[in-house]
Computed example of a mutant assay.
Amino acid sequence: MIEHEDDVRAATEAVIEQWGDVLDRLAEGSSGAPILFLDVDGVTSPYDPVPGGEMSVVAGMRIPWRPSVITVVKRLITAGVEVMWLTTWPAHWLPDLEEALGLPHLPVPDPVEGADPSPTRWQGWKTRTALTVIAERQPTRWAWADDHLSTATRRRIRQDHPEALLLAPDDRIGLTDSHVTQIEAWLLGEPPLHELVRQLNTALGTTLVAALSGATVSTMPERWAEPDGPVPSPVEEERLRAAHRTWTLIAEAEGDDVARAWFIGTNPVLDDTSPVMALRQGRADDVDAAARAFVRGTWSQ
């Protein structure tokens, strides 16, 4: 088991690099614009009220939603991402929902029903529909947010689609700012996972990367960084991506050495836990908030 280490390797080369060549390789053989599939209940609209959020009435139902999340969705549309509904909501309800959220009309792909009355665990109608669209459009990257995306489904899809980002929000909370930041970074330019891990290994060292990801074997970050190496679990991947976003934020604002020290130091915003350990505990949103407070200079308040 990897434990927290106060003594980490000395400063290494800068982690912030240009990713154009990586993205060119990723896009090779792909032709379509990025795609985002969105569910409604438990995703765009969480089941619990949103503190400081909005509440609309659609089809006689109270619909809570986060304006900050919808702002990012609109920004993605403006940037050329094709956002689609992939939901059990009746199609004739969706225009009213779009009007309430301030969204333009979004396409709804035709559902693809399977001939097999007993589909495999991971291959429900939504999965078949999404993969049919992907096969037709060949996007450079795509993302799918659905509260019912099981670990088995995500793991199986990623075997054939490394260009996919698959998120399963807590249905009571729905998509958060951290989620849509991750989606935006992925669809508009975040590096492939193996390159992302390589950058983290360079920045923090493999011991800390193993610790924050929750890996039980210290050599896994080295193997994850190999283009043809093993793939982290969905939970490990989420922690790695959160760590990379946080590293980028602080390193760009304060430099690599400060970012490294911030990751391993106890943090008052995180109840005197280090960001490395908070990421390991699954507290990505808390770490993101702590990083932004640090960059703003309000971390000690």
Rank of each mutant, 00 (worst) to 15 (best):
W93G: 02
A59H: 12
P64K: 10
A91D: 13
A59D: 15
M84R: 15
P64I: 06
H92T: 10
W89K: 11
V72H: 05
P46E: 05
E54H: 12
D39P: 04
V83A: 06
V69M: 10
W65R: 11
W93E: 13
P49I: 04
L97I: 07
G102R: 11
M84C: 07
G80H: 04
I70C: 09
E99C: 03
T44N: 04
G102D: 09
E54R: 15
V40I: 14
P64R: 13
G53Q: 06
D39Q: 06
T78S: 09
G53K: 09
S68A: 15
R66E: 10
D39T: 05
V69D: 00
W85V: 01
P49G: 04
W89G: 00
G53P: 00
W65Y: 15
V81Q: 04
S45T: 14
W85T: 02
E54S: 14
L101T: 09
M61F: 11
G102P: 08
M61R: 15
D48N: 13
L76E: 00
G102N: 11
P51L: 05
L76H: 03
A91T: 14
E54I: 02
V50M: 05
A100I: 04
S56M: 05
L97E: 01
I63R: 15
L101V: 07
A59N: 14
M84W: 08
G80V: 01
I63W: 12
T44Y: 02
V72E: 10
G102A: 09
A91E: 15
R62L: 08
V43Q: 01
R75M: 04
S45D: 01
S56Q: 13
T87Y: 10
Y47H: 13
K74T: 07
P46F: 02
T88W: 06
E98K: 08
G80L: 03
G80Y: 05
L76R: 06
M55C: 03
P95Y: 10
K74W: 01
A91I: 12
D96I: 00
W65I: 03
W89P: 00
L38Y: 11
G102Y: 09
P95E: 06
Y47G: 12
E54V: 12
P51Y: 06
P67D: 13
D39L: 04
P51S: 08
W93Y: 12
A91R: 15
E82D: 10
D96G: 11
S68V: 12
E54D: 12
R62N: 14
T88M: 10
P67A: 15
M55K: 14
W93A: 13
G60R: 11
V83H: 11
T78P: 00
R62D: 08
R62E: 15
V40P: 02
V50S: 06
G52Y: 04
L38S: 10
L38C: 09
R66I: 03
S45W: 01
G53A: 07
L76S: 01
D39R: 05
T71G: 14
V50N: 09
P90C: 02
T44W: 02
R66L: 07
I70Q: 13
V83L: 03
G53T: 03
E99H: 10
T44K: 03
V40M: 07
P90Q: 12
V58S: 03
W85E: 00
P46Y: 05
A79V: 01
E99S: 12
